[in-house]
Design a binder for these strands. Structure first.
Lengths: 345, 345
DNA sequence: TTGTAGGCGTTATCAC
DNA sequence: GTGATAACGCCTACAA
């Protein structure tokens, strides 16, 4: 099976012109006569001529496409962000190639190299939970591939970044729990190698300290796989529940961790928020119909996707080397629902 | 900014060989001496030579990539299906380019043409809710572009299909409601132009008839946008609730419709299943933590994605024209939870 | 105003 | 065994 399309050469032959004349005519060059142009354009549209993007890429060294690496599509935060990326890319006539690292360092490396060799014009990436070392990206970046970071970022690459205000989002979530009267607030989060983990934990700690509480390390649990492995989350949760001073609230730091924790607590018949309150970072569109409705720190995922794409395309299309970079920090929104609301005593 | 990679030509120059020798050496041709081969391979790996896929595409007329069109990524069914597509594609060394139609016919047409002109080797598509006419696909298909259909399919294109057993899934869901004692079972579904809508409605009707009930047309509501527009779903639901014989159960036919309906019922403080029971097609990974836990018809999304990709790649790589096509129908699973369980009288 | 020629990186054919 | 050449489809100096 072979897919055949009409080429410039075909047009040239049919019209008894040279390929360059046709090419110029198609580009509306001023050096081509009106008649010839009209003739070529008519023929082209009649036979639905479309320039072969592969050939164009080879010629121009640009593919009009951008690569995206996220840990997992099956997650409302990232699917929403991708919607944002797609919308801007489409509007600027770029293709989007989406790949998933599944939180694996190896797959992140493989994907980045694969994409760069596929001649994407730029890369948008949110780092995997396993990634400790970004040499693979630095290497590509130094070779001239524009890279833009969002969500899980690193300062090891001098480039644009778009993140949510993780610190503040976590601070507000924790403060909210404190205001509701909870005191033993646990924190379940991802790998400390992730920027979001660090920032969210800082917000959590600071809120406690500002309330005159000393963060208790026993209440902080790291799940290296960010909730992708349920057993890991279960273990963390069990350890919390077995503590002498069992937490009266949990603040979960990511989408998967939030839903998994909620699910596990339900399976154990633990009342929320009666026995344990819950607040989590999540962009689930269904948080309001969870049982209980989940208090959520919501990130402006769509906007984050849009912004980072604008910035990347700016990098790609910049004539001269860009030396000053932006770090956009977008506000999160705390949606207070039942899971964190202290029931009347 | 320009991204430069090492080419065959560079290797040839450095080693004082011709490009053809280098090319053959890299491909392990038997006509090249062991020494030369070793030399070339060493140099290539030292400088991390990677063949330029763009050039290969141009040369071979294949891009080793497949295009995907789904209505929306931000939906567990499709994100899971895409995971399946990706896993098989990766394993067979194909790239996946994902696009979204957002249930719009125009965008579906634009995407399909864009992808085909981007020289994807094949197309996997689940039709948009607006699509009534598939000439755009027929055209591409006739020109020789391999196309495979999943989920929302059409028989207007002679090719492989992978779908869930929508009829049976719907039948079982409805029968389950009947067994629980519900009698006035409403059905909220998508556009009748979609194969899934028709099949699921048939299952629904048949289950009613098999129980000796006459399907009541007032109980059947179509949402042309498949739940993407909340207002549309709200309207449908309101009309049901205002009926004289208000339904005592609702069977929703898609992911979005299910979550939206649940959310709306909750907003109206209607008890589920007390006042109205609910069963829906959904692949939400959170259905068990909904309030109430949602009885769900779950599709084998991952497997569907894998199967359709296998079939597409088979088409792509087939030497001779394929004339016999498969229609794979995979079983759904009914997960019974609280939302449909008759409370003790 | 139009045409020729060369090249983007790779591969395949054919000659040496 | 190795190399020269043409070709994939497009673009663009440079000639004519």
């Amino acid at each position: 099976m072979k897919f055949e399309a009409i080429t410039i050469k075909d047009i040239a032959k049919a019209l008894n012109l040279s390929v360059s004349t046709v090419s110029k005519a198609l580009h509306g060059s001023h050096e081509i006569s009106k008649e010839t142009k009209a003739q070529v354009l008519a023929y082209a549209s009649k036979y639905k001529y479309k320039p072969n993007p592969i050939a164009q890429s080879l010629k121009k060294g640009r593919s009009k496409s951008i690569g995206v690496i996220v840990c997992n599509i099956d997650n409302n935060f990232f699917s929403q962000a991708i919607n944002g990326i797609e919308s801007v890319a489409r509007q600027k006539d770029y293709n989007v190639i989406i790949t998933q690292s599944q939180e694996s360092y190896d797959r992140e490396v493989a994907n980045s190299e694969h994409l760069s060799s596929r001649s994407v014009d730029g890369l948008i990436i949110s780092l995997s939970a396993e990634t400790r070392n970004v040499d693979h990206l630095v290497r590509l970046h130094e070779k001239g591939l524009p890279i833009a970071l969002f969500d899980r970022v690193t300062d090891a690459i001098a480039t644009h970044q778009v993140i949510a205000d993780n610190y503040k989002g976590a601070y507000e979530a924790t403060r909210h729990l404190l205001q509701q009267g909870f005191r033993r607030i646990a924190h379940i989060t991802s790998s400390l190698s992730l920027s979001i983990t660090v920032e969210r934990m800082q917000g959590y700690r600071q809120a406690l300290e500002d309330a005159g509480l000393q963060p208790d390390e026993r209440y902080i649990k790291l799940c290296a796989h960010g909730g992708m492995i349920q057993e890991e989350t279960r273990l963390a949760l069990m350890q919390l529940l077995e503590l002498e001073d069992r937490p009266d609230a949990i603040f979960t730091a990511s989408d998967r961790l939030s839903t998994t924790t909620l699910s596990l607590l339900r399976q154990m018949y633990i009342e929320i928020p009666g026995q344990i309150a819950l607040v989590g970072f999540t962009n689930s569109i269904s948080a309001d119909i969870f049982n209980p409705a989940l208090t959520a720190v919501v990130q402006p995922a769509l906007e984050m996707g849009q912004q980072i794409t604008e910035l990347l395309i700016q990098l790609i299309e910049s004539k001269r080397p860009v030396t000053s970079f932006q770090k956009l920090v977008l506000a999160t929104e705390l949606k207070i629902r039942d899971s964190s609301t202290r029931p009347p005593a």
